[in-house]
């Protein structure tokens, strides 16, 4: 592998995520954790996933050292009614993209171990169904920063 390719690979690892995983991995981008609202302790994380591999990839567990619990939730709108449910896992099909975004999929981060301020970084550990780990460092942002 030439030097340029190595540098590119290193840059990608730093910018997006790192993976303790032997098989194919998900590309993760646009990761952000929204700081809790006043009086609330729960935070929410959003991100975009892209499975560039030839195989479906399943995430069946999430944790974060900064929080006691992390769960995958989905808000659904049906007949104008918003409902939220916890999901055991999510699967990104081969070649497909999946967005965790407001009013849809989101990662609930519950019971922070310490106060969380904008500018901090939260480590998200997403577990592949085969046991590998996808580790994502997410910046904490103020809510509303991405609403234009």
């Amino acid at each position: 592998m030439n030097r340029q390719a190595v540098m590119l690979l290193l840059a990608m690892l730093v910018i997006t995520a790192c993976s303790r995983h032997d098989g194919p991995a998900l590309d993760v981008s646009n990761v952000r954790v929204l700081a809790p609202l006043p009086g609330r302790s729960a935070s929410v994380a959003y991100m975009d996933m892209h499975n560039r591999s030839q195989h479906p990839l399943t995430i069946d567990g999430i944790s974060s050292p900064e929080f006691v619990r992390a769960e995958i939730h989905e808000t659904t709108l049906s007949d104008g009614i918003a409902r939220m449910q916890a999901l055991e896992s999510i699967t990104v099909d081969a070649g497909a993209r999946l967005s965790f975004a407001p009013a849809g999929l989101h990662i609930m981060l519950l019971d922070p171990r310490k106060g969380l301020l904008p500018g901090a970084t939260v480590r998200l550990e997403l577990r592949y169904s085969d046991g590998g780990l996808l580790i994502v460092d997410a910046p904490v942002r103020t809510r509303g920063d991405d609403v234009k």
Binding site: R40, T75, A82, M84, A103
Partner: peptide, 17 residues
């Protein structure tokens, strides 16, 4: 409701915009 982590704050944020 205030414990609603996703759609409620997103909607209020949008209305504020």
């Amino acid at each position: 409701f205030t414990h609603c982590p996703d759609i409620c704050p997103a909607t209020l944020q949008q209305l504020a915009v």
